[in-house]
Nucleic acid binder design. Structure first.
Lengths: 202, 202
DNA sequence: TTAATTTTATACCTATTGGTATAAAATTAT
DNA sequence: ATAATTTTATACCAATAGGTATAAAATTAA
């Protein structure tokens, strides 16, 4: 019953659009304009489906947004999992921030980070949406913390400082960069910031 | 003609509300819920005036928001001007970030930074609002840059690095902290981040 | 006291919002 | 073929958005 719309049905009129492609289009819109800034008319026009189809396939606007968060984490932020698996902590941070800058200065204008945009963007009535985003950030920060703990065990960095605090500091730099990108900073400017910030990361 | 509503009129029914107090109420709402997240009904209810009075006194919603930016810069961010006038660069940064953390963890939940919230918050149709906010950030970054140049002239820090890039790095940390605050970070957590980040600032 | 002037209050306007009822269209199982 | 099932299309809904027309209320100048 729950998987009604998840399992491919054998009877009835076939779906006339690609589920995943439509989801990516929705993510692109939410990314650029935020949850409240993207209307259902915007969505259905860009996804090239009509409104009841959207509700049938994705539930409602908030559920669609949640699916976009998943899509973003799985596809756009795959570099985070890559980063934490690097051999040294320096390599991890390099891969993390290089990939981030690349992603956030793609598009015209810069799209910044979908998660960060969303957290600041959504109004009070959509508190559930905001909670999903904050949870996503917590997951990311957890991955960074574990990576830092490994580095401490390997004596790569001093074991005195709190991994949680260090992870939050890295996360703070990450969010700062994404806001700068969203404010129009160029890739070159972000690179310069990153170069200066390396004092912090080593 | 232009100053029609700026000059205090001698005839006619007197204003029944305090202009500045009403503005502060509006700032508080916009700060918490953003430009689109704050409706005219929200505004008039909280300001305890009716709609035509708001339009008569402040123009329209966007003009009111612009006035709130000014109010925020003048009153809430006064510590930036204080900071750049400190004797040493270390003192400047200390005052800057201590004041910032204090401000952004005031309120329940944390209000974060009005400017940063606004930049990420506003939709495409309110591009003028966003431009005002980005301009405000540019002014702040300029003040930091000048302070850093002074420090270089006084040989307080090495003269090799670019003041603009350094200022943008400080600004990046600033915005990162404000997003962390808006995401629910505690004052203690922000302090820890700041302590780690001091490696960056010295 | 009356005329001019300014603010306040009520009621309204059009456009847009997220969401849905209903029936036609397209498919598969019998 | 026909019945069952699923998606699509059109049209609609109530609620809310930002903004304004109109007239009453409150004040000062004459």
């Amino acid at each position: 019953m729950i998987e009604k719309s998840l399992t491919k049905s054998t009877r009835g009129r076939p779906l006339q659009f690609n589920h995943e492609a439509a989801l990516n289009v929705a993510l692109d819109l939410f990314w650029r304009h935020g949850f409240e800034g993207t209307s259902l008319n915007d969505l259905t026009a860009a996804m090239a489906i009509n409104r009841p189809s959207l509700y049938g396939a994705f539930g409602n606007k908030a559920a669609l947004f949640d699916l976009c968060i998943e899509t973003y984490l799985d596809h756009q932020l795959a570099f985070i999992d890559e980063a934490v698996e690097k051999e040294t902590l320096t390599e991890s941070f390099d891969h993390l921030f290089q990939s981030q800058i690349e992603l956030m200065t793609s598009g015209e204008p810069n799209k910044g980070c979908f998660i960060v945009q969303g957290i600041l963007n959504c109004a009070e009535e959509n508190i559930a949406v905001k909670a999903s985003l904050i949870e996503a950030r917590k997951v990311i920060e957890g991955k960074l913390r574990k990576r830092i703990q490994v580095a401490q065990m390997k004596k790569e960095i001093e074991s005195g400082l709190s991994p949680a605090a260090f992870a939050k500091t890295v996360s703070t730099l990450y969010t700062g960069l994404s806001v700068q990108a969203a404010s129009g900073a160029t890739k070159k400017e972000l690179q310069e910031v990153l170069n200066l910030a390396k004092k912090l990361l080593n």
